[in-house]
Design a protein around this nucleic acid. Structure first.
Length: 369
DNA sequence: TCTGGGGTCCTAGGACCC
DNA sequence: TCTGGGGTCCTAGGACCC
């Protein structure tokens, strides 16, 4: 059972501002703060009627819907609401798998489509009445089909796909409706004669695997409506990053350097709050032409704390910058600092790291007691 | 009319090892 | 004088998601 909260950020804000219910509301950088390079994060359905949608440049949304009420984002508020939702969902399923701040799947074992519908109605009603959050719900025997069903249920609807009807349900839909198929893959599929999901059901597995890698097998299973058990992962986050887009594109190292330092410190504090250590550090630039360059380096042992992160990030940022100065000399639009190969900070791992540092300083092949 | 700030997974080539 | 078959790790980039 896939649960997707409708216009989530806006819905969270409307809980505090009931006077705005029924009006075009946009969560994003308010135009009253001056021209921004930001985008719409969430739009109420009243605003969507004007053509406003998430990820749209704010300036464009202002033109489309000049009377919309803009609210600056409050991510801490949305995180709290998301946790309220998960707590509610856990009362109905032993296993709840969160996919994003506004989506989660309940893993269930139900006797019939009718039972699924009854439960979906209960969950939807509780979300609305207890948390004042509208949700769309899809039910199927595989996650991608449940998600597709949820998309068809928006807004505030329920779509249950019984297993024997799954293939017929997806067959007429365009391949773009498949989660994981974006513009590029859509075009590739179209060139191979796959327009609708039903076309994929007849394809040869080996053929699709050759052209689309491991994704080919998933495409066929989905098109044939095959059930797929949900695998729960207990792994923690794999990376953490933080980005800033400059108000004006930057063309001097002097201006870049303090920003790298600030982002690295911010990231380090976030990792510290989460009790995470990192095994690799990276820096990325998005250039004025919107392409990206990245440099990432693995560390000999995991590290924590802001001093080393700042040092590593500055070195990488400088390298990436000098490489560009020897070439196209583009300006930096967005700066990112990221960490990868994250591990939880525990007593045991901390002591192993100390061992690793001593061992390497003692030279290769030595056993340190 | 320009395009945020987070993330995940996959592929591919090179270095290196047995 | 030439060179197999298997593997891991690292880095860069691409596609996609909310």
């Amino acid at each position: 059972m896939y649960v997707d909260l409708d216009a989530f950020y806006v819905s969270c804000e409307l809980r505090d501002r009931p006077d705005l219910v029924g009006k075009p509301v946009i969560v994003g950088p308010p135009p009253s703060d001056g021209p921004s390079r930001g985008v719409v994060l969430s739009a109420s359905y009243e605003a969507r009627a004007f053509g406003v949608h998430s990820a749209q440049p704010a300036a464009q949304a202002v033109r489309l819907c000049p009377d919309a009420v803009w609210i600056p984002p409050d991510f801490a508020k949305y995180e709290r609401a998301s946790e309220e939702v998960r707590t509610l969902l856990r009362r109905h399923a032993s296993s709840v798998v969160p996919f994003s701040i506004d989506e989660a799947a309940l893993v269930l074992d139900l006797p019939s489509a009718a039972a699924a519908r009854t439960l979906a109605e209960t969950v939807q009603k509780e979300l609305r009445e207890q948390l004042a959050l509208p949700a769309s719900i899809g039910v199927a025997t595989s996650r991608p089909i449940a998600k597709i069903a949820t998309d068809r249920a928006k807004p505030a609807g329920i779509v249950v796909v019984p297993p024997e009807e799954a293939a017929a349900f997806v067959a007429p839909l365009p391949v773009r409706a498949i989660p994981g198929v974006g513009p590029k893959t859509e075009e590739l599929l179209r060139r191979h004669g796959f327009e609708r999901i039903g076309d994929l059901a007849k394809a040869h597995a080996s053929d699709l695997r050759r052209r689309f890698g491991t994704f080919g097998d998933e495409l066929i299973a989905l098109a044939r409506g095959e059930p797929r058990p949900e695998v729960e992962s207990t792994a923690g986050p794999r990376s953490r990053s933080t980005d800033r887009t400059f108000a004006v594109d930057v063309d001097r190292w002097d201006a870049l350097e303090p920003a790298v330092r600030a982002l690295a410190e911010e990231l380090a504090h976030g990792l510290d709050r989460e009790a995470l250590r990192y095994g690799a550090v990276g820096v990325a630039y998005r250039w004025a032409d919107f392409t990206r360059s990245q440099r990432i380096r693995s560390l000999p042992a995991t590290q924590g704390g802001s001093a080393s992160l700042v040092e590593q990030a500055l070195r990488l940022a400088r390298e990436l910058w000098e490489a560009e100065q020897g070439g196209r000399r583009r300006r930096v639009r967005t700066l990112s600092v990221r960490t990868e190969r994250l591990v939880e900070r525990t007593q045991r791992q901390a002591s192993l790291d100390v061992f690793g540092a001593e061992a390497s300083s003692a030279g290769p092949g030595r056993v340190v007691k």
